[in-house]
């Protein structure tokens, strides 16, 4: 008897969560006056506190952009730091309005969890880090190298596949914990370190001589990271998705934090539509028509956000690579506003 009742109770509880989630998030957010945003519990360049305890990062800025679009105030956002295990529950139950926590967009997550991925704010993927003294410029020259890798991860499987596919030999040096991998690589026990590229850059900062190491250009797996919202609230989904697109479009059109007011007087019809001078695009997503102008004024365009948090002039020093605009050979592409 119990065995029959229990699943029903669980199912009902989940059902409640699912139906409740279909309420209009934007109205709730407007009523409470801030966006509740699920963030990482600390990842360099994506969500990390500065000396004053303010959260900074490329993920955090997406949340601030949403807040700027709705309230014209990038500070109208509260962050809920979530662990990897908690993140989806927190979103499903309405504890957070949007999850921007370097979450990889995969089919199973998109289709089975009652969630929707609103876009990609960072294209990550597995990469390789080597010592500059090794004189290697491409991962294809790594045949015969010893590779430090964390065991039991998809990273390890990708590594095997990549070397097999390219007919190369390698010697795996596997460890259970990330710290052990760091220490082993730093102690020269292997030639190559492999994990997600964004991780490689932050690990490099913790090596004895960061300048002696470089990340190779090859990316061997797809890890598109992006903001996630609950399924069933298309208005909110559109708002988050177009917040991201507005930032990318702004970079493409050269609208920056500094020149956004000036650009409102531009003759370019694309810029006029973006900044709400022409058309009523903001109203369609439940906002005022200068929504994109607000985002750019407070947070900046995608390129500015990237450069400020992870770009070449930050300690992380990540090159744009595949995250460059489509017009510059990257993957960041936003549909036009028209």
């Amino acid at each position: 008897m119990t065995s029959k009742i229990l699943p029903i109770v669980f199912g009902a509880a989940l059902g409640v969560a699912a139906t409740a989630a279909s309420a209009a998030t934007l109205d709730d957010v407007k009523a409470k006056g801030f966006v509740q945003c699920g963030s990482n519990t600390g990842l360099a360049g994506f969500a990390a506190p500065d000396d004053k305890g303010e959260w900074n990062g490329i993920d955090v800025d997406v949340c601030r952009a949403i807040a700027a679009a709705i309230f014209d105030d990038p500070k109208a956002v509260k962050f809920t730091p979530l662990t990897a295990k908690e993140r989806f529950t927190a979103l499903q139950t309405g504890e957070v309005d949007v999850l921007v926590r370097n979450t990889t967009w995969t089919m199973s997550r998109d289709t089975t969890l009652g969630l929707n991925f609103a876009g990609v704010n960072y294209y990550d993927g597995q990469g390789f880090m080597v010592r500059k003294s090794l004189d290697v410029t491409s991962a294809l020259e790594l045949s015969g190298a010893s590779v430090c890798v964390q065991t039991g991860t998809t990273t390890e499987l990708n590594l095997t596949d990549y070397f097999k596919a390219n007919g190369m030999e390698y010697k795996p040096v596997v460890f259970e914990k990330l710290e052990e991998v760091n220490a082993a690589y730093d102690a020269n026990r292997c030639d190559v370190y492999t994990t997600d590229a964004s991780g490689l850059y932050s690990i490099r900062l913790q090596l004895t001589n960061p300048g002696d190491h470089m990340v190779l250009p090859e990316i061997i797996s797809k890890e598109p990271l992006g903001p996630v919202v609950r399924q069933g609230d298309d208005q909110w989904f559109n708002l988050v998705r177009w917040t991201l697109f507005a930032m990318i479009n702004a970079e493409e059109m050269g609208v920056t934090m500094a020149n956004v007011e000036e650009m409102k007087g531009s003759d370019n019809p694309n810029v006029k539509r973006l900044l709400g001078v022409d058309g009523k695009f903001g109203e369609a997503i439940g906002l005022s028509n200068d929504w994109a102008a607000r985002i750019i004024k407070h947070v900046g365009n995608y390129g500015e956000v990237f450069d400020r948090n992870v770009g070449p002039n930050t300690p992380l020093g990540i090159a744009r690579g595949v995250n460059a605009l489509w017009s510059k050979g990257g993957l960041q592409y936003a549909p036009p506003i028209r």
């Binding site: 519990t41 600390g42 990842l43 360099a44 360049g45 969500a47 990390a48 506190p49 500065d50 000396d51 730091p81 932050s202 900062l205 913790q206 992870v310 930050t314 300690p315 992380l316």
Partner: peptide, 9 residues
């Protein structure tokens, strides 16, 4: 958490 501040790593 503050280890993740790239300004101090």
């Amino acid at each position: 958490l503050n280890f993740s501040d790239s300004n101090w790593a």
